[in-house]
Design a binder for these strands. Structure first.
Lengths: 194, 194
DNA sequence: CCTGAACTTGATCACTCGATCAACTTCAAC
DNA sequence: GTTGAAGTTGATCGAGTGATCAAGTTCAGG
């Protein structure tokens, strides 16, 4: 089997993710993608099948990045709750692209797409669910460690945090008011600490 | 001045809003609009100028509807906090269109559009700010009435509620889990009640 | 009746979209 | 060096886009 692809698949997916994340699925044209990843249409379609398939890869990559950042922050803190707090800070205030905070790509996907793209929606929903479970495990451990009130339902606490993160990212992207979001973030965590 | 428009402007704006809200700005074609409001392109452009101008009207109408619902719920409850709670319930669980809850149109606008549509963004941001101020006034009154802890900053409480509403609407639209959102909503209000 | 401005219509414009494909290039295997 | 499959290229496809406009329709004022 001669000749290997001239492009780096992971690099291409990463660049496509950044563009899709920024502009959304519909507003990103295949021409935009061609320029961003420096590939011609034939190569892109040979490698990924369709615009939708490439978006699916980008979405998978996004979810994987988020999990990676969470793991990283958990490893940096002895306390799971501190690690989670640090993850929220990272996601809100140290954006991967652009200046202002970006809305979660999973939420953006679900907000933009209808049932005409049911597979992409299902994929985004599954990733959101995975994140919620990760949060729930962290809260449960924090209860064992005595950081969170043991009477609270860990799933409800985790869900509330996820909803607040979603809201804060939207709010921050809209207003750009970092001070306000800082308060919102600190309040959210101080409420669940014992 | 002979001959008056055959269409009802408010009705047309309302129908356009429903379509724009459901599909988003970019995914709504002028043909879709023509069918939805039963007008031909020339009439629409004569009456509204452009797709963007019509969206602006739809956005204004949306914000006006939301304010109207809030006023309505406040009038129905002696307690401002109860009225606000009722408003949240209405917005989350009694959607204007479709079955599942819809994401806030203001947030959807800000999530979808880039600085290429700066005016629409600015309009959405202004409407969000107006809602936050309305919430803040309600919280302030609730503090006077002894329903909310007087030590809390009313703006921060209002902002937190708004962020949680944004998050809950996104979460509900994604998961469809009404029970979970009910808990989130009740928790959000029970946290600020004295 | 007419007149004529307001309004409506549907064909049409220039353009962009996602996707395709025949022609071309590359290079491991022999 | 030759082969041939993998990979690449850019022109191109048909469909759909937002917007325009000449022609047609409507109806209050005279």
């Amino acid at each position: 089997m001669p000749n290997i692809a001239r492009y780096n698949r992971e690099d291409v997916i990463h660049k496509a993710m950044l563009l899709f994340w920024q502009k959304g699925f519909g507003a990103t044209s295949t021409r935009d993608l061609q320029q961003a990843v420096d590939m011609r249409p034939g190569s892109i379609y040979a490698a990924f099948g369709s615009k939708e398939d490439l978006y699916a890869e980008a979405l998978k990559h996004y979810a994987s990045c988020m999990s990676g950042i969470l793991d990283e922050r958990l490893a940096e803190h002895a306390s799971g709750l501190d690690g989670l707090h640090s993850f929220f800070e990272r996601v809100l205030f140290e954006p991967v692209l652009g200046e202002a905070g970006q809305v979660c790509m999973l939420i953006k996907t679900l907000t933009e797409l209808t049932e005409a793209h049911a597979e992409l929606r299902a994929q985004a929903i599954a990733s959101l669910s995975t994140m919620e479970h990760l949060f729930t495990d962290i809260i449960r451990s924090a209860q064992v460690a005595g950081e969170v009130c043991a009477d609270d339902d860990p799933q409800r606490v985790a869900r509330s945090l996820q909803v607040q993160l979603i809201g804060m990212r939207s709010y921050y992207q809209s207003t750009g008011d970092q001070g306000a979001v800082r308060h919102l973030l600190d309040d959210a965590f101080s409420r669940i600490r014992v």
